[in-house]
Computed example of a mutant assay.
Amino acid sequence: MAVSTSASSTLPLLSLHRAAGNPNPAALSFPPPLRAPPLRSRAAAAAASAAPAAETIPDMPEETEGTGIPMPSSIGDDGEQLAPKQKIRIKLRSYWVPLIEDSCKKIIEAAKTTNAKTMGPVPLPTKRRVYCVLNSPHVHKDSRFHFEIRTHQRLIDIMYPTAQTIDSLMQLQLPAGVDVEVKL
Rank of each mutant, 00 (worst) to 15 (best):
E63C: 14
L169E: 03
S41K: 04
V3G: 02
K85H: 09
K91Y: 08
S168R: 07
M60G: 07
P52M: 09
K87H: 14
P137L: 00
S74F: 11
T151K: 01
S94C: 10
E65Q: 15
D59V: 09
P70Y: 06
G21I: 01
P161N: 10
G79K: 13
V182F: 14
E55S: 05
P84S: 13
D157Y: 10
E148T: 06
K112P: 06
S103C: 11
K183I: 13
L28N: 02
R144C: 02
S74Y: 14
Y160N: 13
A110V: 00
H152G: 04
C132D: 07
T10Q: 15
A44V: 06
R144T: 00
A50K: 01
P161Q: 03
Y95L: 13
A19G: 11
L11Q: 12
N24D: 15
P70D: 08
I149G: 01
R42M: 00
C104N: 09
T114S: 10
L184P: 09
G68C: 08
Y160P: 06
D77Q: 15
G76N: 11
R129F: 10
A26H: 06
L155Q: 07
R150I: 02
T113Y: 08
D167E: 13
L92D: 03
A7Y: 09
M159Y: 14
R40A: 03
R129H: 12
I166K: 05
A46E: 02
S168N: 01
A111M: 15
P31L: 01
R154W: 01
P84W: 02
M1I: 12
Q171C: 14
I100G: 02
P123K: 03
I156R: 06
P175S: 06
K183V: 12
Y160L: 12
G177V: 10
R93Y: 12
I156L: 05
I90K: 03
T56V: 08
P12N: 07
S41P: 00
I100H: 00
R18G: 08
T151D: 09
A20R: 15
P58L: 01
